[in-house]
Each structure stands twice: as structure tokens, then as C-alpha cells.
Amino acid sequence: MEISISVNGTQTGGDVAPRTLLVHYLRDNLGLTGTHVGCDTGYCGACTVIVDGRTVKSCTMLAVQADGRSIETIEGVAVGDELHPVQEGFWECHGLQCGFCTPGMIMSSIALLDNNNDPSEAEVRHGIEGNLCRCTGYHNIVRSVQYAGAKMRGEDPQGASQGVSS
């Protein structure tokens, strides 16, 4: 089937088999391998992308279902050399270890902060409940998201660059 999808602001498309998952379209057809696959039941969130402003687990959507929509993946988050505050937060607060869950975690965190840039610990934990991390125990992910929120509110949060950790 012919499809046309905007990905990170670029129009993409072509002929895809109807059963192609969106995540495989992104990874195999477009070479955007930052979106990961960690399960087969829509549970881990490693494949999370933003479709028309809402987070979607791209392993639960067919590429053809995304026809005509606008998608943002992890590769489109930084503007040139400038990291998104959430990316900076994960770096400053050691919010990642192996990094495999990280792209999905960052996409969910961006969506969370877009709704509420001053989330409590509980709100952060609730907001990323669809994303599993096996490495960090989430402690530093919570800190990373709150760091990003502070940054987005115009504050000057402290992280590893200032010698501050957990």
C-alpha cells in the first residue's frame, strides 16, 4: 500500500506491506533505529513515538495506520546540536544506563512535561508507567524528568555538571 507520513518534519512514504508495523517502518525503511523494540505485547514502551502530539507505542500501530499523520521520533527531538531539556536531564541526572529504554522513556517524558512542567514525583512515576527500565530502578529517571521540568520553567537545576548526583 502507498503511504505518506511526516517523520520529524520530513515527508516520507512509499509502498509498504499492509502488515508492516510502524516501528519496523521507522527502523527498516527509514533507518531511524533510535526507536527500539523490547517486547511483543505493547508493554515495554521502548518503541514509544509521538503521533500527532500523542504518545503511541509504535509496535502497536501499523505503518498504514499512520498514513497522513505526523510523527516525532527520538531522532527529531534535539534541534541541531541543542539537546531538548529532557535529553539534558537524562544526561545530567544519570537517567540511563544501557540506554535501550531511553528513547521511549524520553518521548513519554516529553509528552508528560508538555502537559505539566512541574510534576511531583508521583506524577512523574505515573506519567512513565508505560515505559519499563531494567537498569535504573527509575530513581534517576524521576530526577531527570524533574530536572527537565525545572529547566523548562526557566530555573537553573543542578546535575552532574555541578557535581550533584542522586
Partner: peptide
């Protein structure tokens, strides 16, 4: 800060 992070947080 970790040296490995800039690529990982950008999906690279």
C-alpha cells in the same frame, strides 16, 4: 557526566 550518553539520548 557519562561519555556514552550523548549518542544514547539522541537515539544514535
Amino acid at each position: 557526566r557519562r561519555k556514552e550518553d550523548p549518542s544514547l539520548i539522541q537515539g544514535k
